[in-house]
Design a protein around this nucleic acid. Sequence first.
DNA 1: ACGAACCGTAAGTTACCACTTACGGATATA
DNA 2: TATATCCGTAAGTGGTAACTTACGGTTCGT
Lengths: 104, 104
Amino acid sequence: MSTYALDPWTALGDPSRRQIFERIAERPRSVTELAELLPISRPAVSQHLRALREANLVTVRAVGTRRIHQVNPDGLRTLRNDLDSYWGGALANLKELAEQETQP
Amino acid sequence: MSTYALDPWTALGDPSRRQIFERIAERPRSVTELAELLPISRPAVSQHLRALREANLVTVRAVGTRRIHQVNPDGLRTLRNDLDSYWGGALANLKELAEQETQP
DNA sequence: ACGAACCGTAAGTTACCACTTACGGATATA
DNA sequence: TATATCCGTAAGTGGTAACTTACGGTTCGT
């Protein structure tokens, strides 16, 4: 276990990290492959992958000298739960607004 | 329409902004009320609210001298769509992994 | 009309973090 | 064994953005 787990929202808050994550979501990819797709260096990708790993958004498996990264459902579950609670507030607002309009 | 719309992922990437958004999701609140709930100054809250507005995550309505902010479903829809596409990749990974295990 | 409450923006500072280069370890290939 | 590929981390730097204080505008109450 890592000493400090990063928040998945904060992790995906960075544009480069979001690009990396989107590529991984398409299919599992190696570090070098990701670096070739992005306008940043390979070490930068490595550092971003570490953040995504600490946020439980990706997992790794070693295949030869390459490290294949793929999406981890754990972090996605956290995001979905948070998002659902946000939706609760949004719907409550719309409901209240509708009631005010129908009965002023 | 604003000249430049901020990405909702980037907007919620900031911890303070996420706290503000969570409070608004509970119920619509004024700027001063939000500032009292957070460890930052009122102008800071104002700046964060602007970012959330540009990301289509909140809307405002003036009530007297106060500006009441509430959740905007538009930004939430974007987040949900992105999240769903991420889930697609995650499920595909799990499926492929299961197939490899059952038929090596 | 006057003070108070509520708020947005401008300006300036500081801390952080995204990025680079440099280096070394691990594994496959010849 | 030697070489190449793939990768992580350390160290250092620059830019940015999150915050503060200061100021001025708008609306409500008296």
